[in-house]
Amino acid sequence: MNKVVTQPGSTSWVRFLVIVGLVLGALFAGLPVLWMLVSSFKSNTEIFAYPPRLFDESFSFQAYTAVLTDPQKVRYFVNSYLVSGLVTLCTLVVGIMAGFSFSRYNFRFKRVLNLLIIGVQSVPPITLMIPYFGLIVALQLYNTYWALILTYMVFTLPYAIIMMTGYFNTLPRELDEAVMIDGGSSSIILWRILVPISLPGIVSVGVYTFMLAWNEFLFALTLTRTNDMRTVPIGIQLLMGQHSFEWNQMMAMSVLGSLPVLILFLLFQRYFIAGMAVGSIKG
């Protein structure tokens, strides 16, 4: 009896604590981002104005127009979209094929190959870095899009393969058999039957791949030389290296550079969160 009496009181107390916790957490996560946003609308002289203000009289899109009318900075964005898009496309095609192989066939070295592919995920990028430069030059890929695309696939493929194998494993083999009885080949099974059903999984792998490629820094820095090959993360660093810090432009570029990932995430968050949960358990 006693319990029933105390419960309403304790729930409203819990309710209060939860709301306080939620708000504090949101401030921790959101305030820095809010500051990025408001700084991108300031003029560079007002970035460190004392006392700091959320909105200055000088509120303007000046930093955005400066970034978007500079052909070099626009090129960074074009490069990032192109490279990330192609990485996503190639990773999906290659990863779907490999996942199909692991899910539907038994063959020699299957276990070893599977382990090796999982192992690649834990290879530190910096370990590959030193011989990489020479290798990319030898392959005549230095300072090209393909240098970046193929390199990023080394890091995106393992995750894609693990995820796709997992997805295909959940699809009943009766589907394959029905196609085989009708005289269909393995490629029809894969591309006409399994791929359309696995679309949620493919979308989550695709979004993850795009984000990884969009964000990469170390190899983009080392494998490209000219400004027409640089991507957004490098472009932001270059803004920092120049004689003066154009903080408002850096923030505007950061906002613009984060939009694609944010939009992708908001559009596909349901698929994505589900996919990530599977990934983090099955990994």
């Binding site: 539907r104 590959l128 290798l135 493929l157």
Partner: peptide, 24 residues
């Protein structure tokens, strides 16, 4: 057949991952 489906992966990962590791 399974190796045919795996071949792009195997080629890419051996050239751009195993060879650099061996080299380093």
């Amino acid at each position: 057949v399974p190796f045919a489906y795996l071949s792009p992966t195997l080629i890419l990962l051996s050239v751009l991952s195993l060879i650099p590791i061996a080299t380093v």
